[in-house]
Every structure is written in structure tokens, then in C-alpha cells.
């Protein structure tokens, strides 16, 4: 009964791992974008949202329990998604490098017949991966991208034995830096392209696509990509142009 290892051993199996972990990650980015729209409801609502994430599932689940489960699942998804992509890409490059015209070009002339999005998956993926690391160091840990005294770490409220969050302050100061905001904006555009191909591709890889549904699934991919990208693009722009202070 080691047949389940088919998912690890075969090329299509590794793609299935990419599709499943991709599904989890798409769910996360959609939820992340939706949650962040509370930025527009002012500091109190936004900070309460940040605190509330730690109490998700209360009173059934304990403080930060669901959050840590989510963190473990998301981190494993990223690791598996990245590992599969590297394994698959490595083999494909070996295939196309053989009999190639040169070290950089496979054909003397080659014309693209289909959409550009699929061609950006690897570069986009690496950019998004680097961005996620920066994003965590920036907004979660306050380690980079802030001037002195700008970032507010969670403060312990001794009276109620809870933490007080001021993530609103951190977002506003964080995006005041044009370099940080610029990096964020560029990555979101790549994320949009990544999602446009990825969401449809996920269904194709899991074998849930067919001529009947492909239009519908392409539509869903456009919807998800547009919603996440446009939503996320508004946050730094709103801060930068002073709509959120």
C-alpha cells in the first residue's frame, strides 16, 4: 500500500501536491485581503481584528490555538509548494537543455502561442516567496523598513493579562516608505498573474477541468486574481495618498 507515494514519485503526483497546497495558499491570500479591508474602518476595528485573529474559534479553541494550527499548515504548504516547483522545474530544464541551440536558448526562433501568465509562474513565485519573508520581517516582527520609534510591538496589558495590538499604526508607518510600498505593489501585480494561471491550473491538475467547465474556471481565476490584487493594491495606495492616517 505504498501507492500513495505515487504523489511523491511521479511528475503528475508532484503537480497534485502543488495544486492542493496552492488551494490552501489561495484561500489564505483571499482571507488576508478580506480581513485587511477593516483598515478602512479605523484603528479600533482594525486592531480588534488583529487581536481577534488570536482568539479565533473561542470559546471552543484556546488562545492562539487556531492561529498556530493555521501557521503550521500555511508554512508546510509553502514548503511543499516550493519543493514541488523546484523538483519539477529542475527536471523540465534538463529536458529542454538537451539538444538546445545554446545554453540560454532552446530554439533559434520560438514563438509563444498561448497566454503570458503561465510563463511568469516561476519568476513570480520566487518574487512572492522573497516578498513573504520581507513582509513577515516588516509588519509582523518590525525588524526592517521602519525608522526608530515607528513600529509598535504588542504591549502586555497586565490588568487583563492580554496583549494590546496597534497594527494600524504599523501599517500606516510601514507604507509611508515609498520603497516598501513600491515593492509591495509590484509583488501584488505578480501575485495577480500567478493567481490567474494558478487558480485555473489547480482545477486542471486535479482533473476537475473539462471543456464544459473551463470557461467557468477561467472566470473564477480572473475573479479571484482581480479581487485579491485590486484589494491589496488599495492598502498601500490609500496610506501613501493619505486616505488612511
Amino acid at each position: 500500500m505504498t501507492g500513495v507515494l505515487t504523489l511523491y514519485r511521479t511528475s503528475v503526483g508532484k503537480k497534485v501536491i502543488m495544486a492542493l497546497t496552492g488551494f490552501i495558499l489561495v484561500g489564505f491570500v483571499a482571507f488576508h485581503m478580506y480581513g485587511n479591508t477593516k483598515l478602512y474602518q479605523g484603528p479600533e476595528v482594525f486592531n480588534a481584528y488583529a487581536a481577534g485573529l488570536r482568539d479565533l474559534g473561542h470559546p471552543v479553541l484556546g488562545y492562539e490555538h487556531l492561529l498556530w494550527i493555521a501557521r503550521v499548515v500555511l508554512l508546510s504548504s509553502v514548503v511543499l509548494h516550493f519543493w514541488s516547483a523546484m523538483a519539477l522545474t529542475g527536471k523540465s530544464q534538463k529536458t529542454t537543455a538537451a539538444n538546445a541551440v545554446g545554453t540560454l536558448k532552446r530554439y533559434g526562433v520560438q514563438k509563444r502561442q498561448t497566454g503570458y501568465a503561465a510563463y511568469t509562474m516561476r519568476y513570480g513565485g520566487v518574487l512572492i516567496f522573497l516578498f513573504v519573508i520581507y513582509h513577515l520581517l516588516h509588519l509582523t516582527f518590525g525588524a526592517v523598513g521602519y525608522n526608530a520609534e515607528q513600529y509598535q510591538h504588542p504591549a502586555l496589558d497586565l490588568k487583563n493579562n492580554t496583549y494590546i495590538y496597534n497594527v494600524y499604526n504599523n501599517v500606516v508607518y510601514g507604507f509611508k516608505n515609498p520603497w516598501v510600498a513600491g515593492f509591495y505593489l509590484v509583488t501584488m501585480l505578480f501575485l495577480g498573474v500567478h493567481l490567474f494561471h494558478g487558480v485555473w491550473s489547480m482545477f486542471q491538475t486535479l482533473g476537475l477541468n473539462s471543456a464544459k467547465y473551463t470557461g467557468l474556471l477561467r472566470g473564477l481565476a480572473i475573479l479571484v486574481a482581480a479581487a485579491v490584487t485590486i484589494g491589496n493594491l488599495t492598502f498601500p495606495l490609500a496610506v501613501y495618498f493619505g486616505f488612511v492616517q
Binding site: S11, T114, G115, T205
Partner: peptide
């Protein structure tokens, strides 16, 4: 297919 050294589909449609 994999053992022959073919690459891996990324659903491009080329």
C-alpha cells in the same frame, strides 16, 4: 513518461 526524461506539464497549453 517520467523515466524517459520528458519534462513536467505546467498547463500552458502550447
Amino acid at each position: 513518461h517520467d523515466a524517459e526524461g520528458f519534462g513536467n506539464c505546467t498547463n500552458m497549453g502550447e
